[in-house]
Design a protein around this nucleic acid. Structure first.
Length: 150
DNA sequence: GCCAACGTTGGC
DNA sequence: GCCAACGTTGGC
């Protein structure tokens, strides 16, 4: 089993939305590296830290679990969707997504500031300068340390 | 709102 | 294939 971190803007889709919906297709990823993680590496049962970006404060808000492995992101086919992409035809879909199921919400968000101050998490990808990737693998030890903090 | 970092696009 | 221009991300 592997561990991941997925960013979401809570104004668009928050941990509370995930909690009330129970599951969600992780639509709208339009970055090849992140797409490849979903398409090739994320397996059912993998655990996912749900991270709120562009939030006050930004940080890890809870945990989800991969409930369905890669399938085409059909929002790319919907002209009315903001994720529409004419370069992703149905015969040869360019963008894929996984389904995420709600697991838990932290009582209090584990803020980016707190993550930065925590010894042992220094080499997490999310803490690297300039990291903009919306999906990153997380090491088991980092995942466990973070869960231990909440 | 600013801006650094990074990804993508497109002319050549 | 190079790289300048442009767009996006996301913390502050």
């Amino acid at each position: 089993m592997r561990y991941w971190l997925m960013k979401t803007e809570p104004d668009v889709f928050s941990i509370d939305d995930l909690k009330s919906q129970k599951t969600t297709p992780w639509e709208g990823v339009r970055n090849y590296q992140a797409r490849n993680f979903m398409r090739d590496e994320m397996k059912k049962g993998d655990l996912v830290l749900i991270y709120h970006s562009n939030a006050k404060p930004p940080g890890v808000a809870g945990v989800g679990v991969v409930s369905k492995e890669a399938f085409p992101d059909h929002f790319a086919w919907d002209k009315k969707s903001k994720y529409y992409d004419p370069k992703s035809p149905k015969e040869n879909p360019r963008w894929m997504m996984v389904e995420i199921r709600f697991k838990k919400k932290f009582k209090e968000i584990l803020s980016l500031a707190e993550l930065k101050e925590t010894k042992g998490l220094e080499d997490m990808l999310i803490l690297r300068k300039g990291n903009r990737l919306s999906i990153t693998p997380v090491e088991k030890k980092h995942y466990e340390q973070i869960i231990g903090m909440r």
